[in-house]
């Protein structure tokens, strides 16, 4: 299909893609640039090039502030909480969803459609509507500002998404290959390990990435259901950098912290772009 495009159209499209890439890259480059500015360079256009954009004299001072300096008691626990809460929520959802999606794609039982419709419907719940009742309940049962008190609501974000995405992946697996392998003399375990597991693993992995992104992004739960370093995750902690007056100018520290939490997700996108796209769209639109 691409071959019948004229060279002129091709070149035109290559040119048109440039503004799209610039539009995407600028806010990212900007937060990186801000993180490399010293306190004195933040608001001083003469110390930056490209119209107050890129620092002429980049410094890693802000990174020192968040890891070992004044903001470290805010950032380090938050980073630890983020990693623990997101990994545990992702792990629980993917394991539960794996059994569920397997049943949906392989077995015939009434209620399959109900499960998938519910999963889709609840993923568009206004999450803030869950905050008020949980805030009240967590205060009474002592889960307010604790790690499990965040993991449970995070399941509301990751589990429906995992069920939906993983079911879409599993339905594309040629399950009859398992029987074929057994006919050829493989044991059930061999058939599972050598045939089914390699086919299912990419879908499980991609679902885990997408679920992790969703949990990593959360601000609604973590800003309203936490009150201290006990359980506050990075997005919520970033908002508190502003209020805290432990250091004079929080802009650079916020930018540095933002860069740190952005690096892992950008790496995941760079490595698994194709799979993530398949996972995001397969559930909604058959591509």
């Amino acid at each position: 299909m691409q071959t019948n495009l004229s060279t002129k159209t091709r070149n035109w499209m290559a040119v048109a893609s440039i503004p799209v890439m610039i539009w995407t890259a600028i806010p990212l480059l900007w937060i990186l640039a801000t993180s490399l500015k010293g306190t004195d360079a933040l608001a001083d256009p003469t110390k930056n090039s490209f119209g107050n954009f890129w620092p002429k004299d980049p410094t890693l001072e802000n990174y020192r502030v968040i890891f070992t300096g004044g903001a470290s008691d805010l950032f380090n626990p938050a980073l630890r909480n983020s990693i623990i809460v997101c990994l545990v929520a992702t792990l629980i959802s993917v394991i539960l969803a794996m059994f569920c999606a397997y049943a949906i794609s392989r077995l015939d039982f009434p209620g399959k459609k109900l499960i998938l419709t519910t999963a889709l419907a609840v993923s568009f719940f206004p999450v803030i509507a869950m905050v008020t009742p949980l805030f009240n309940l967590w205060r009474q049962v002592g889960l307010f500002d604790t790690i499990p008190g965040l993991i449970i609501p995070y399941l509301a974000l990751t589990l429906p998404l995992s069920i939906w995405t993983l079911s879409a992946f599993f339905q594309q697996i040629p399950w009859e290959m398992e029987q074929a392998a057994q006919v050829d003399g493989a044991t059930s375990w061999q058939a599972f390990r050598k045939v089914i597991a390699p086919l299912a693993a990419p879908g499980v992995f991609t679902t885990a990435i997408i679920a992790f992104f969703t949990a990593w992004n959360d601000f609604v739960f973590s800003s309203n259901l936490t009150s201290s370093n006990n359980s506050r995750t990075v997005p919520a902690a970033l908002a508190f950098f502003t209020g805290a007056s432990q250091f004079t100018q929080p802009t650079g520290a916020i930018a540095a912290a933002a860069v740190i939490v952005t690096i892992p997700v950008v790496i995941l996108v760079l490595l698994f772009q194709r799979r993530i796209v398949a996972g995001l769209t397969s559930g909604a639109v058959k591509g």
Binding site: M21, A258, T262, V269
Partner: peptide, 16 residues
């Protein structure tokens, strides 16, 4: 490149 903003934390985008 187009996919990257999807993975960025909304709060980070807001600060940027």
């Amino acid at each position: 490149i187009v996919l990257i903003p999807y993975a960025i934390i909304t709060v980070v985008s807001a600060f940027s």
